[in-house]
Design a protein around this nucleic acid. Structure first.
Lengths: 353, 353
DNA sequence: TGATAAAATGTAATCGATTACATTCTTGCT
DNA sequence: AGCAAGAATGTAATCGATTACATTTTATCA
């Protein structure tokens, strides 16, 4: 905001002078309050246009004692990621629809967002916060909660005892369906799993689903087949290379999410393996690009954009002092494409999507 | 920020009274300015704690002459797009590095950001703005400029006469190289072009490059081969369908950008055409996913993330009253993969990347 | 010790919009 | 024409923190 930069900024006073009215009248026009004659409105409007007047929200907030920033914030690991940018789109969209702006903060590259360090997004610049980030620790969340600052969690649960609303997805059954598809429809038995980042909520439940499916099909769980992809391309690539080096016997890989699945496929292809002919790979999330990938990814669909919108909706409830849902879970759905290999055995269940 | 919640709010005045000092001293303690004795600091701190004082940022913003928000804003069409989210990543990254937060506004879904309607991002919530959006018209830009509000344009030029810094890419030569590759190395002659949105700067120069290349190779320009993809998947798909319906003789398509190229390829594949065997398709931008696409895309590389960082850098110069570059052009570079089909004819120039 | 510089603190104006209250102008009606 | 009633507009206090400037206190050193 340029203010002391040569000329000073245009105020209601300037507009009033230009229009030949009082500041009160200008304010009335600005706020569309009653009892201003059409002629005056026009004159004031003209002055506003001529001078390029912009309302100072700080002054407005101060004098009217409503004191909202008109912003909400989101904290997430990165932006440039098919899954997260879809989430961001939903959040931004709904925020804008409600005349709020969105402040984005990516934790990547940030040394640490641990307890001591204050968040760059807080009551000073936002009316509430959506947090999708494991990096934000429980102590920080507790502090926000104690200050009664509106917060909604995405893809994670609140610390013990704090009733911060969470928006989550159903991981376990989705994964179980996916793995059972690999077993029953595609004929795989040696199925590897790439876990997400340590302590990750979604990863935990996907692992549960994975184990349940294997157990239900009488396939023993082999710890050698359980690696880490960290929902991250680099790490997924490393994991693939480790497995290849060990020369493990693997039919299929559940990569944890689509990002890791795509990276895994590329790593396998670079090592001369064909997917799904030599080895199948499936993901989770149904990223927008997954259907365009080579081969098109079999995955679990998650209504990511809607989840973003829902989180904002919850946040607005919180901001407006309305009732909120402690937990909003979203269902997931198997999407069968080609990377699982079921079409190779002429399986009638295969359908492009 | 909860304020009028029953009891009235605690002000610096209350703290001052409680601590037995003046408001100026409280303010000094709050802002860690020089020359407050440790004893006084302690006393004020105690009063702050006892009263549960919370600083009112509105009042602070109003009275403080520095009056910076600590935010910069970006206006763009959408977020959930491989190219734009990469740009956003670069912008956010550099902003955070400089202790700024990023406010994002997507114009999609917005009825119109024409002259009358004030931008949701302005001097009230940001210290400067990066604009990547054709929807923001010249009049709005002129207003911002007149108010001396820091603005940097991305991928577009300022209106006549306004020296707003622009960060751009080299389109014409990049496109010419791309098209000449299609002609000379891949053996195509009937090459179609899908333009970007109407009036788009990049599209204009890519079209120039396209025409130059054809002319240089003695290929007549056929207006039947010039359609519109609008840098958009839906529109690209439609254009392909139109062309297919007309039964035009086409060797290759330059889709305008990678988003349109990928959509075009999918549309062609759905119509039973093989890419690049039956028809070649090339794009522009080298989106992160382009190399993973099926087939891997021949395209023109653009350092998108760095462009984002550069735009922020220019904006900071503007904010700090330093010298800026009127124009920062970025060079582009041909990336040959498989969608152009040159490897099919055993061309030694083909190399994976 | 006294003079003086430096540190600490206080006073009061200020930022820009809102709004209670006061004043002026219209309008309709007898 | 005269007079309410209500519409339109104006005046000035107010929100809470900052800061230029003034004043008091403390420290330093010849």
């Amino acid at each position: 905001m340029i203010k002391n930069n040569g000329r000073s900024r245009v105020t209601v006073g300037d507009v009033a002078k230009q229009a030949g009215v009082s500041t009160a009248t200008v304010s009335r026009v600005l706020n569309k309050t009653n009892n201003v004659s059409p002629k005056t409105v026009a004159r004031v409007q003209k002055a506003i246009d001529e001078l390029g007047y912009v309302l100072d929200t700080a002054a407005q907030a101060l004098s009217s004692s409503s004191n909202r920033t008109g912003n909400i914030g989101i904290i997430m690991p990165v932006i440039n990621n098919s899954f997260l940018s879809t989430l961001l789109e939903g959040v931004n969209q709904y925020a804008n629809t409600c005349s709020y702006n969105l402040l984005t903060f990516a934790t990547i590259g940030q040394a640490s967002i641990q307890d001591g360090v204050p968040l760059p997004l807080n009551e000073n610049n936002t009316d509430g916060l959506i947090i999708f980030a494991d990096k934000i620790d429980d102590k920080t969340l507790t502090h926000l909660y104690q200050r009664q600052f509106p917060v909604v969690l995405l893809y994670r649960l609140p610390p013990q005892g704090l009733d911060i609303p969470s928006v989550l997805i159903e991981n376990k059954n989705g994964t179980r369906t996916l793995i059972e598809h690999l077993i029953k429809n595609c004929g795989h038995r040696r199925i590897a799993f790439m876990a997400g980042p340590a302590g990750n909520y979604d990863s935990y439940w996907r692992e549960q689903g994975y184990c349940e499916a294997l157990t239900a099909c009488d396939i023993p769980i082999d710890s050698q087949l359980m690696g880490v992809g960290a929902f991250h391309d680099w790490r997924a690539k490393e994991q693939i290379e480790e497995w290849l080096e060990k020369g493990l016997d693997i039919d299929a890989i559940f990569a944890g999410d689509d990002t890791a699945a795509m990276a895994a496929i590329i790593a396998l292809q670079q090592a001369g393996k064909r997917v799904p002919e030599d080895i199948a790979v499936v993901g989770f999330n149904n990223d927008i690009i997954s259907k365009y990938f080579n081969p098109p990814l079999t995955t679990v669909h998650v209504p990511t954009e809607e989840i973003g919108r829902t989180a904002v909706k919850q946040l607005f409830h919180l901001i407006n002092g309305e009732q909120t849902e402690a937990l909003t879970p979203f269902n997931t759905e198997l999407v069968v494409r080609q990377s699982c290999g079921c079409h190779l055995v002429n399986n009638p269940r295969w359908h492009p999507n």
